[in-house]
Design a protein around this nucleic acid. Structure first.
Lengths: 175, 175
DNA sequence: CAAGATTGATCAGTCAATCTTG
DNA sequence: CAAGATTGACTGATCAATCTTG
């Protein structure tokens, strides 16, 4: 495909802009990683929107709740494990609530907290959506990787995530 | 941190929802990869917004143009290498044009195409933004990885991207 | 009519208040 | 007053037309 060739040529050209600071292998890795970070979430989001009429973020919310004891969780904990802000979660929960998949109620133990509770309809929905989503993940990510590669990927991802956490902590309290 | 512990515990719980289909190692890899796909783009976007008042997508546009011959490129080619839709690129270009970093003109060779051209101000802007951005990439991604890990990451990313392309092509023309 | 590009409407995400409870 | 949560205003992305040129 002509578009593909153009893309490859241009990517090399883009890469050159970092030649002073990144070596050849790092450039290649960076280009591949940027493309992966853009394409993989997009393709998984598209799969869920097409097959289950929900975003990946909404799926994460419902999946987390369906595994939680009592199918419920505090909003702030939900936000942590879905890696989203509380504001984003609050907006998304409103949508899910309107669709009848979730309801919210103040936490009896601590009035400041809100409990998100998965409804029966929501449970059914995740249950129906899960097989197709997991199949897509298997097909796209794991089917083409060896066990060794999967282990290496995990290690590498953790290494980078730890660095992000470390820098985040340092940044939020510079003293 | 309490939040961290909650996150780890809950992540294990989420993982269990895929036990029927993904093995233990795949679950761990998937959780790590999802977190990486969420956090890494977010942190790089934040760096550019903070230090250069632009999004990562806008940076990609300006960086690609600054490396292109004549500092110009067709919109459709730009869209391909930035992995964005033409509509998104068009909107973003409007913003960049309003800020004086870019101008657009019909392609003299083919009136259907539009050429995006980087202005002097735009060139200066990328030039100023690049060192900080590359430093962040080095610090976050490459400083914590060995040369071997970097090579493995490239291979793995390409493997997954090839799978995505393959499935995309199959999906768009099922016959 | 197909391909490149743009636009307007709509939808989701972010940010800065705001409100409430302990 | 700090932490959990929500809301409204704004910004950015997506989708479905639409327009133009070859």
């Amino acid at each position: 495909l002509a578009a593909e060739l153009v893309a490859m040529l241009n990517n090399r050209r883009v890469a050159r802009s970092k030649q002073q600071w990144l070596d050849e292998e790092q450039q290649q890795a960076w280009i591949a990683l940027v493309h992966l970070m853009i394409r993989l979430p997009a393709v998984l989001d598209a799969q869920l929107r097409r097959d289950a009429e929900m975003s990946h973020f909404e799926y994460q919310i419902l999946a987390a709740l369906s595994m939680a004891p009592g199918r419920s969780m505090r909003m702030s904990d939900l936000a942590t494990i879905t890696e989203g802000s509380l504001a984003r979660l609050s907006q998304a929960s409103g949508r899910l609530e309107r669709r009848g998949w979730l309801r919210r109620t103040p936490d009896p133990d601590d009035g400041r907290c809100t409990l998100a509770i998965l409804s029966d309809a929501g449970e059914t929905k995740v249950h129906d959506a899960a097989p197709g989503h997991v199949h897509a993940v298997r097909e796209i990510v794991f089917a083409s990787l060896s066990r060794t590669q999967i282990r290496q990927l995990t290690t590498t991802a953790h290494r980078v995530l730890e660095t992000i956490e470390r820098l985040d902590d340092a940044g939020s309290s510079p003293m």
